[in-house]
Every structure is written in C-alpha cells, then in structure tokens.
Design a protein around this nucleic acid. Structure first.
Lengths: 240, 240
DNA sequence: CTCCATTGGTCTGTTTCCAGACTTTTAGAA
DNA sequence: TTCTAAAAGTCTGGAAACAGACCAATGGAG
C-alpha cells in the first residue's frame, strides 16, 4: 500500500472510450438538471468543440440518449436536442442499487475527494477579496437554493456548490469540484429530499457564504466540512 | 464570466493526443526524479497497462524521449528503458522562459488549484486516525526531505507532498495532487535551490506533519497554505 | 555450454475517432 | 410566399490507437 509516487504519476492517460465518456457526461448534465427539463442542449458543433470530440462521436452519444428517452431531437432552425427527462421520485431500493453499482472503495474515494476539493475551494475563496459582482452572484445562488422547491433542489444545490469553485477563477479547481460532484450524483438522486434536510442544509449553506464573505478561511473550511459530512454520513449509513 | 455550471460540466472529455500526453507524463516522472537517474522504467507491457494505452503508443513516446536524450533503451533480459538525464542547474533566464511557456492565466490557475487540493488533502488526513504504519511512513518522508541534498531535494519534496495525498487513501485525490504538482514542476525546476529556502521549508514541513498527527485540521490546512504561499509568492514575484 | 525467462522490436488487421464537405429540414423575416 | 439562417443529418477518406501474435536479443541458471 501507498507505494512510491509512481502510482499517482503513471495513472491512466485517457479516461477510456470517448463515446461512453461523452454519454456519461451528457447524462450527468441532464440528471443534475444543469440543462433543465424541456431546455435545449447547445448545438452539436458547439458542444462537440467544448467536449473536445468530433461531431460524429457526439452524435452517437446523443442518439444513445435519445433512444434511452433522455433527449428529443428536432431538426431545422431553432431545433436541437431537448431534454425530455424528469427525475423520478426515488424509491426505497434505489440507493442500495446505486451503491452496489459502485465498486467497494469507490464510495470512500469519491467522498474523500469531494471533501478535499470543496473544502479547498471554499478556503481559497475565503482568502480572497471578492468583487461586488462576485458577492452578488454568490448571494444569489444561496438565495436560489434556499428558495428552491423539491423539483429544483438538486439542480440549484449543485449550482451553489459549483459557484464557489468557479468564483476562485481556477478552471482546474472548478473541473475538479464538478468531477467530485458527478461521482456522487447518482447516490444523491437516490435519496429522498426531506424538508428537514433542506432546512438543515440551508443553515449550513448560509454559514459557508458568511464565512467566505467574512474572509475567514478556517470557518469556511469547517462549514463546508460539516455540510459534506452530513451527506457522507447519510450515505455511509446505508452501507452498515 | 462565471456562467452556468455548463462550463465546468461540459469540459473536454479527453486530454488530447495520447502520444503527446504520454510523453508529457513520462517526462514529468523523469524530471521529478520519481524514476531516478540511472534507474529503469517499468517494462513496456506493464507501463502501457498502467497508463491505459497500447504498447505501440507507449513505444512511440519512449522513442521520442530516447531521441531527446532522456532515456536509453537496452534489449534482452534485464533490459529496459533507463533514465539518462540529470537536472541541470537552473540559469537565470530559465524561470522567465518557463513562465512564458505557460498561458497568461495558467499560472494562477495552477497555483490556485494546487493550494486547494493540497490543503484539502492535509485537512482530510488530519481528521483521520492514522495507523502506526502510516505515521511511520509520513515521518519517514519528512526525515527524507529534511536530510536531502540539493540533487535529491525536488524528488524527495515531491514524495513528501504526494505522500500526504496518498495517505488519505483516495486515488482521486492523490491523482489531483500529482496533477497539481505537475503543472508547476517546470517552474520549480527553474528556481535555484537555496539552502535558506530549504531550511525554511523544513520548518514548514515539520509543522504540517505535526498538525496532521495532532489531528488538527485547521492547523494542518494553515500550515500547508503558508508553505505553498511561499512558493506562489516567489513565482508571482517574477511576473512583476 | 545450453536453455530459458524476460525484455524490447516488429508486423497485421481492426476499431475508433476525426476533419470537413455536403444535404435536408425548419421557423421566422422580408 | 419566398428567402435565409441555423440547425440536424449524411458521407468519405484518413489518421490514431489498439489488440494480439510473433521475432530477436540477452544475461543468468543449471
């Protein structure tokens, strides 16, 4: 265990199959509600460019999602790929199933990773002097998630968390946080949204923002850690 | 600026060219001294598997490094690719050159990213109860870097930093830290190693380990932040 | 001295992926 | 009603990457 740095350094160069990877990404964008129900995905050419893949590959992925009922594609001007998917209310077996879909150590890996990068992002942000526009944006996202109904909650919660990372101005860090979030999405989606939890989270979200705006890195870090620990404990509890 | 999460989510699926990416990786392993001067890289088949690429692609990369004088390849049993490279003493223009080789925002991005993930890793680790073996390893790495001579310094410093991430047991986090380190390697290599800096770093390294072993996440976070801030300030200073 | 395991070197056919040109559909503007 | 721009759909040739089998060298074991 924990052998030389070779292990970290000589890790896989490419994630795997471009097609599958793309399907996964788009699926996450849909499930996270980043592209909301009924909304249009960006045009193929644009999307392909952003994802760094060819149009052909992208289209294969889109077709797969179309056939699975996540997207509806319309041609012609003002056409495009529209999201036709609404997150179902999670049943009781769903979390178990989602957990089993992950490898054994994978859950811990994902949770640890998320804890580290999100705490790091909050800390970094709290060390900065934010511009008024940034402050406004952060407050806005906080208000959004606190005002969210059950159908919007996950989406706005995601937006709030990612907003912190994006405000650091580091694309690498933002990508890492997005990645971390992706790895627990399926699990989060399988947890029923309880109003008790929402209210609890709202307090924690507020504490995070407050600490950041107060330029207090330690408090920011702690607030995020506490917040994420709640989710982590919930998920880990189902493994017992 | 700071538009919707789409930006973080729909980032490139694959890093780029497998060949170039591989060359870069191997080069980093060499420059970081992870595979020391005169030592042998793992066998092709093994390496290809670890990097998740075909042997053909790997061999192309190896040949490129061979032709650039980084590796020497010997056939037959006990053959392999041997590192033939010794880091040159950095001259005065080197840092400038390395900095210019990066895009404008890239340096800030890399430094911010590094700050976040390494602080996060230290914090996470400090929340844990470490096994005796883990404690021994951490202390060992600390002692190694503090005992290092100028020729070994970078390598052992890298090993120490990565050790913290690896001890969290999260491959994702370890990979993120390795990645962050990679992005500033060229810059660090261009800085002359001053004994003053080494001594200063030694104190900070010790403080980090102490905080982790004391199970004090805040102090661990602060110690890492302070340590990295030193490097960051040094690099940023050259941009003025 | 012979054998053989281990390692790099080479070849072949296949799959994946790409770049780019071209076609078709469609909704709105003129 | 006609025209146009923006979008998806289609096609082709080629490059990149892979899988896997096979060859060649080499140093140590017996």
């Amino acid at each position: 265990m924990t052998d030389s740095p070779l292990v970290s350094l000589l890790r896989p160069v490419r994630s795997g199959n471009a097609f599958e990877e793309t399907v996964e990404r788009l699926l996450q964008a849909i499930k996270l509600g980043v592209v909301a129900h009924g909304a249009k995905m960006p045009p193929e050419r644009e999307l392909a460019a952003q994802l760094g893949i060819s149009r052909v590959t992208l289209r294969e992925a889109i077709r797969a999602l179309q056939e699975s009922g996540y997207l509806e594609v319309r041609r012609g001007r003002y056409g495009g790929a529209f999201v036709v998917y609404e997150p179902p209310d999670p049943g009781h077996g769903d979390l178990r199933r989602a957990l089993n879909a992950m490898g054994p150590g994978e859950l811990d890996d994902a949770l640890t990773f998320r804890m580290a990068v999100e705490c790091g992002a909050a800390q970094v942000l709290a060390e900065r002097a934010l511009t008024p526009a940034q402050i406004t944006l952060l407050r806005r996202r906080l208000a959004d998630v606190n005002r969210a109904g059950p159908s919007d909650y996950r989406r706005l919660d995601t937006a709030f968390h990612l907003c912190i990372a994006e405000l650091t101005g580091s694309p690498l860090l933002a990508a890492a946080c997005a990645d971390a979030r992706l790895r627990v999405t399926d699990l989060l989606n399988a947890i029923p949204i309880l109003s008790f939890n929402i209210q609890h989270s709202a307090l924690q979200h507020a504490a995070i923002v407050e600490a950041i705006l107060d330029r207090d890195p330690d408090r920011a870090r702690q607030a995020v850690a506490e917040h994420l620990e709640g989710t982590a404990a919930l998920l880990r509890g189902f493994l017992a």
